[in-house]
Design a binder for these strands. Sequence first.
DNA 1: AATCGCGCCTGACGGC
DNA 2: TGCCGTCAGGCGCGAT
Length: 271
Amino acid sequence: MPELPEVETVRRGIAPHLVGEKIDRMIIRQRQLRWPISRTLPGAVANQCVHTVGRRAKYLLIELDDGHLIWHLGMSGSLRILQNLPTPGTHDHVDVCLKRGATLRFRDPRRFGSLHWTCVDPLRHRLLKNLGPEPLGEEFSGEWLYARSRGRSGAVKNFLMDSKIVVGLGNIYASEALFEAGISPVRAAGRIGLDRYRRLAEVAKTILGQAIKAGGTTLRDFTKAEGEPGYFAQELQVYGRAGEACSRCGEPVRSRIIGQRSSFYCPQCQN
DNA sequence: AATCGCGCCTGACGGC
DNA sequence: TGCCGTCAGGCGCGAT
């Protein structure tokens, strides 16, 4: 389940192998992802050079001569750079073959990922145009959260995971940030003060920054571009730790479903 | 405008 | 051993 740090790790892993390279061809074995891949995509990208590999939220933006690939890994997607091309497995849906021989291979067992092509500003694409600020950017702050949360009665965890409020805070990091900030995940977003939101924004930035530095969380399907796992899973304080002692007070960590998502928190430390 | 629930899909896991 | 039901999970979307 790639979250933002994982996607950023993938971006950094594949970028050096792609930038400046020319695409020979694209092979699509399975079009039916979250949205069907356009039939015209392979023809559109052939013989184009890669200029940059960027990211907006969890979307990777691969800039070519005449447009951008907008690539989402869903929850089980991976992108690998391969020099010697093994026979594709059942879930290896897309290959981007470069002229000089390397291949970018997309594997996605659950097919929640997506791949789009756009010839205009990718930030204007329907999937990107309404996204909130990047969590590591300056626009994202306690003040921002406070202002946007006034009058909202829903649980703060759902508020944090709303991509119009801030992107890249998925289920894992939302739980972790709320634990660090000492805020109950079910507290109404509109009933949290500025000081607590400042703390929340601060810890969110710290946690995401540390996770990126560590190379992303390792859970189930995730591995970095080169294949080795990230090393952040051991740093998670509450996620996936129901029943274990809270690292701060020793009370058992609890889990419950909030907004159809499993959530983890310490009933003693978070209120 | 905010909020809620759905559905896409497969692998892992538990129960029998 | 094998089969089956259940669940997780990102996130856009339609309904309320």
